[in-house]
């Protein structure tokens, strides 16, 4: 009988959580001092989950610094990359700090703050292997990128003759590059920098010059929430000016990425 009781007990506990979460209605206007920040947690060094299940990384540190500067109380929500924009628009959270590039396509769906860092895209392949990153050189080669990123879109627009594989997470793309399924991947240069310096990536190197220079990374918010956007812009300016940004930058990269 005790088995049954535990069983129903657990079920009711689960039910209670489910019901509460469904019933939890959030008011239309976000409270000014509370901000829910969406991030992915699978994109080192920008956002990742450590072995304690805690979110870490450049995006997370920047978000925390911005919140401190705005005197806002922030909570983080983990969200898969694919559903990031729909989740923002459905108010699962109020801002995306997840290394999201400011693109025209996305600006149809969301608003962006000013940039908080500048990204470029770069190919990575096996050391010693000759990779010609021109359109002709990549013809028929197997190239990986993360789904719904500008790397993926750039490949489809500029290297359509390559065999493009799209992954749900960047981690999985690296796993496949390491196992030899991919000839090369295209990803953000800083993300590559971190991976190339890890044990898993030391047999690989950047190939050619960055292909897409000046990719601006901003904080996405819902359309029309200008108050929040202005506050975020001011906070970005403030943390750059007071040196907080520089300290966080130095923790991850030996060069400025602003």
């Amino acid at each position: 009988m005790s088995f049954l009781r535990t069983f129903t007990g657990l079920a009711f506990k689960g039910m209670a959580i489910a019901t509460l979460s469904v019933i939890a209605l959030t008011a239309t206007a976000y409270a000014a001092d509370k901000l829910r920040i969406g991030t992915e947690g699978a994109y080192p060094p920008f956002n990742l989950v450590d072995s304690n299940g805690e979110l870490q990384g450049f995006d997370v540190d920047i978000a925390k610094a911005l919140c401190a500067s705005m005197k806002a109380e922030c909570t983080f929500v983990k969200q898969d990359w694919d559903g990031m924009i729909p989740a923002l628009n459905k108010r699962k959270f109020d801002a995306i700090v997840a290394s999201m590039s400011i693109t025209e396509e996305r600006q149809k769906a969301v608003d962006f703050s000013e940039r908080y860092y500048t990204n470029k895209l770069q190919f990575v392949g096996k050391k010693g292997m000759d990779v010609d990153i021109s359109a002709a050189g990549l013809k028929g080669k197997v190239i990986g990128a993360q789904r719904a990123t500008i790397s993926g879109q750039w490949l489809e627009q500029n290297r359509a003759d390559a065999d493009i594989k799209l992954y749900d997470t960047q981690e999985n793309a690296y796993l496949d590059l390491a196992s030899g399924r991919l000839d090369a991947i295209l990803a953000d240069a800083f993300v590559n920098y971190e991976w190339l310096n890890s044990d898993a990536g030391n047999a690989f190197e950047a190939k050619g010059d960055p292909v897409f220079d000046g990719d601006l990374i901003g904080i996405a918010i819902r359309k029309g929430e200008d108050d929040l956007r202005i506050k975020l812009n001011k906070a970005i300016k403030d943390i750059v000016a007071d040196g907080t940004y520089g300290k966080i930058n130095a923790k991850y990269f030996p060069f400025s990425i602003y």
Binding site: S21, L25, T26, A27, K90, R91, K92
Partner: peptide, 9 residues
């Protein structure tokens, strides 16, 4: 208003 649905729900 807006209704929040958690991943668990």
């Amino acid at each position: 208003g807006y209704i929040e649905v958690s991943a668990f729900a």
